[in-house]
Design a protein around this nucleic acid. Structure first.
Length: 462
RNA sequence: CGGGGAGUAGCUCAGCCUGGUAGAGCACCACGUUCGGGACGUGGGGGCCGGAGGUUCAAAUCCUCUCUCCCCGACCA
């Protein structure tokens, strides 16, 4: 790792808390968490309802949302996991702007083709601009300016940036917004074989990414459009309330990528083959003959598309003149591919996959806080001491903790805690404090146990 | 882009048909009683009824136009 020259800032979570304690935490009396008891009438699907009720987002316009502190924390965690897996696969992060010039899009021919989905803007000089729905043109322009030789290939470049697509009908909250946060990677190779290697890297990186988020993912062959070939896959995560029906071989569900150490420099084709050899299809691509052949090995489920990767060859490099010199000294348009993950959409998708009738059940890697510390009686001296002490010790141990020190009824606190779905709850009340214990509760199972305060720390900090 | 629905308090909604001083529950503020699963009492604050025209002595209510949001379908990360 490189040495750090940057200013050391306190962790984001630690700011704004006047307690003076070190460590990642927040007191609910100070936190901006506008939860709702009633469901706003506009929300239809469960993730949208829960995100509004849990105070994660606030609608700004149709399909456009502000991310409130709790939702923002989750978004950042998802983003960070996506980033880490891109970096691990050898992709390099950069940042392209949201606003683009129409000129580049004229070069590729897409300015006319894209239609009303593209938000077009004019600046004060009446120049035609647009809010980027994707970035192939921009990245191709960067590439052609700076890379000229096969010797500088391959390259995998990505950014995580807001996009805007003026959907006719945005819906499902952040799952189908008009403005959305997307990670898009672009690959550059001198030939098809190289493009395939890049494709495979992203394929595996995607499996890793979604697995780390706690999701079951199934890659499915997707329409390849005019390019043809077999290099296009959608990544579908399974969720009971998912938007589309999917079919697959049941053995796919047992595949585990988390335990596998991946060497991105090695040949990844065998691993990709393993994942693509078994049948998997979305509703519209489903083959009845396959269904029959599989019999009881076929699984029918519901899913949500959270990623899409595809190879498109010279579709943009040719018209935009992004070429490289070859070993032989000739010049060829660079082979490209693009690889997207809907980061903001994933937040909704994760909720679709993990919730119950009381609220969200966050997988630990993306939970906004790991522990919700509930003080049932902050006005009671013994409770306040026990609660404050636990809060301090958990933070010192580096545990992200949200401390409910509000003067509210027990029921309201429990309901809010279930709603925002932190993986662990620690309940401090007069009953336990007398015996020197607190209750440790797991959100996912509802199971709980009475432990001494020390045992609670050991368990959560361990 | 076709078809439907809705805009009244922060949220959920009633009132509109049949014009006559704008309501409820929750939320909010104060005080008191409560306190291990969304308490209770008393008092209080808050809305040009989405906007613009029109009809009328009088419009949340009737008429016209417009904006916004939501739902179903076709499309998409």
């Amino acid at each position: 790792m490189r040495e750090r020259h940057c200013l050391e800032l306190p962790p984001v979570a630690a700011r704004g808390d006047g307690s003076g304690d070190a460590g990642p935490g927040m007191r609910l009396t100070e936190y901006f968490l506008p939860t709702l008891k009633e469901t706003p009438s506009e929300a239809q699907i469960v993730s949208h309802r829960l995100m509004l009720r849990a105070g994660m987002i606030h609608q700004a316009a149709a399909g456009v949302y502000s991310w409130l502190p709790l939702g923002f924390r989750v978004l950042k965690k998802v983003e960070q996991i996506v980033r880490e897996e891109q970096d691990a696969a050898g992709a390099q992060e950069l940042l392209m702007p949201t606003i683009q010039s129409a000129d580049l899009w004229r070069e590729s021919g897409r300015y006319e083709d894209y239609g009303k989905e593209m938000l077009r803007i004019r600046d004060r000089h009446d120049r035609e601009m647009l809010y980027g729905p994707t970035n192939e043109e921009l990245i191709a322009d960067i590439f052609r300016t700076h890379i000229k030789s096969y010797r500088n290939l391959p390259k995998l470049l990505y950014h995580i940036q807001w996009k805007f697509r003026d959907e006719v009908r945005p819906r499902f909250g952040v799952m189908r917004g008009r403005e959305f946060l997307m990670k898009d990677t672009y690959s550059f190779d001198v030939d098809y074989a190289g493009a395939r290697r890049s494709y495979n890297k992203m394929f595996i990186a995607y499996l890793k990414t979604f697995a780390r988020l706690g999701l079951k993912t199934i890659p499915m062959k997707a329409e390849t459009g005019p390019i043809g070939g077999d290099l296009s896959h959608e990544f579908i995560i399974l969720a009971d309330t998912g938007e589309s029906r999917v079919f697959c071989h049941k053995d796919l569900l047992a595949f585990d990528v988390l335990g596998t150490e991946v060497d991105y420099a090695a040949d990844l084709q065998p691993m990709v083959d393993q994942w693509t050899s078994l049948y998997a299809a979305t509703d519209d691509m489903h083959d009845a003959a396959e269904e029959k052949a599989l019999g009881d090995r076929l699984v029918t489920a519901r899913g949500i598309e959270v990623g899409h990767i595809f190879y498109f060859g010279t579709k943009y490099s040719k018209p935009m003149n992004a070429t490289v010199t070859t070993v032989e000294g000739g010049s060829v348009p660079v082979e490209m591919g693009s690889y997207g993950i809907g980061v903001s959409r994933l937040v909704g998708a994760i909720i679709e996959a993990f919730h119950d009738d009381k609220g969200i059940i966050w997988p630990e890697p993306v939970a906004p806080f790991n522990v919700g510390l509930v003080n049932l009686r902050p006005d009671d001296r013994a409770c306040a001491e026990a609660g404050d002490s636990l809060y301090r010790r958990l933070r010192r141990a580096g545990v992200e903790v949200l401390y409910d020190d509000r003067d509210e009824r027990a029921g309201a606190k429990f309901a809010d805690m279930e709603l925002i779905g932190l993986p662990w709850q620690v309940v401090v009340g007069p009953r336990g404090v007398k015996a020197g214990t607190a209750e440790l509760k797991r959100r996912a199972t509802g199971g709980s146990e009475e432990l001494s305060l020390d045992a609670v720390i050991d368990r959560l900090a361990g």
